[in-house]
């Protein structure tokens, strides 16, 4: 693999680290199986691309993308806590609704951003010779800042209340935690991060596409699972770190697999590989436990 291909994998890995941190909040912290990501990721992309194409500042575009993502997470959470719709179903409803909304926002199935300003542009030379380095570097700064911010949040009074909401809502309420509000705000935060990832993604790829969200949630989940398998811990700063490493590793694995001609894999096989990987990672701990139990009986 060439260094440029490697940095390319790293770049997408960093973007999906943001998605994975969002997934960590919904699936792990709040125990809310949320598939909104497949809609909120392209939503962030669509909002950012439309604003940037309209001549607005790329950072402002990112901020609005995150806000739009927060709104989508809020709707999913609201469907569940107020209308009692099953979590998974609520998020699927929002996901498919967002497909139409994203098309409306962009006015077309895709929106090119070639030559438009991006958050990376100010650091990139005339001939674009250093863009392969600058983009991952800027992304790395954003990820590190997000990680530190999340770690501080989880250690705060509100962050602790949010974790309690996911772990034992009845106890949380008995301690005075407004659990419904926690679910609403946690889901907003989760999807804000995922939409921000979408906004950054379109700026690295030179455009937005309405189908860019397919499989987002599975990739995010894969990163979370790989992270907790490699670095199992109860410390939150380790968990967020593991999640980021999981996202990077996942993209690297994919890049290697696609680059190795002898395996004969092509880009369109990506989702299949991901599904197999996540499935394997989910089953592995159960198999291990089963083996251990069998071993225990025999002895």
């Amino acid at each position: 693999m060439t260094p440029i291909a490697l940095m390319g994998a790293l770049e997408i890995g960093l973007i999906f680290a943001l998605v994975a941190l969002g997934v960590l909040i919904s699936f792990r912290t709040l125990d809310f199986p949320d598939l909104t990501a497949d809609g909120s990721f392209p939503l962030g992309g669509a909002v950012a691309a439309t604003l940037i194409a309209g001549g607005h500042d790329p950072w402002l575009a990112c901020a609005f993308a995150a806000l739009a993502g927060a709104a989508s997470g809020l709707v999913t959470a609201w469907l569940h806590v107020r209308l009692n719709i099953l979590q998974l179903l609520a998020s699927i409803l929002v996901m498919i609704a967002l497909y139409s909304i994203n098309l409306r926002i962009m006015g077309a199935p895709n929106m090119p951003l070639i030559g438009s300003p991006t958050v990376f542009a100010p650091f990139i030379g005339e001939a674009l010779e250093n863009s392969w380095l600058v983009q991952p570097a800027v992304l790395a700064v954003i990820i590190v800042a997000t990680k530190i911010g999340l770690d501080l949040f989880f250690a705060s009074q509100t962050g602790l209340a949010m974790r309690a909401t996911g772990a034992n809502p009845r106890m949380a309420r008995a301690q005075g935690v407004a659990t419904e509000r926690m679910v609403l705000s946690g889901m907003a935060l989760s999807n804000a991060l995922i939409a921000l990832a979408g906004a950054l993604y379109v700026q690295t790829q030179g455009g937005a596409d309405v189908s860019m969200g397919v499989g987002t949630i599975v990739v995010g989940l894969a990163a979370v699972i790989i992270g907790e398998t490699l670095l199992p811990s109860r410390k939150l700063w380790v968990i967020t770190l593991a999640t980021i490493i999981g996202a990077l590793l996942y993209r690297l694995l994919i890049a290697v697999a696609l680059n190795a001609d002898f395996i004969g894999l092509q880009a369109q096989d990506l989702n299949l590989i991901t599904a197999l990987l996540v499935g394997g990672a989910l089953v592995l701990p159960q198999l291990k436990a089963k083996l251990r139990r069998k071993g225990g009986k025999a002895s």
């Binding site: 705060s156 009074q157 509100t158 602790l160 209340a161 309690a164 772990a167 109860r234």
Partner: peptide
């Protein structure tokens, strides 16, 4: 008690019972 949280985190949750929660360290 809250599974997965530490002893002190559980106690911190209870220490804030009936109080408003902000963004200060728990």
């Amino acid at each position: 008690t809250c599974e997965g949280l530490s002893i002190e985190e559980n106690m911190a949750l209870a220490w804030h019972r009936g109080r408003s929660r902000g963004f200060g360290r728990a």
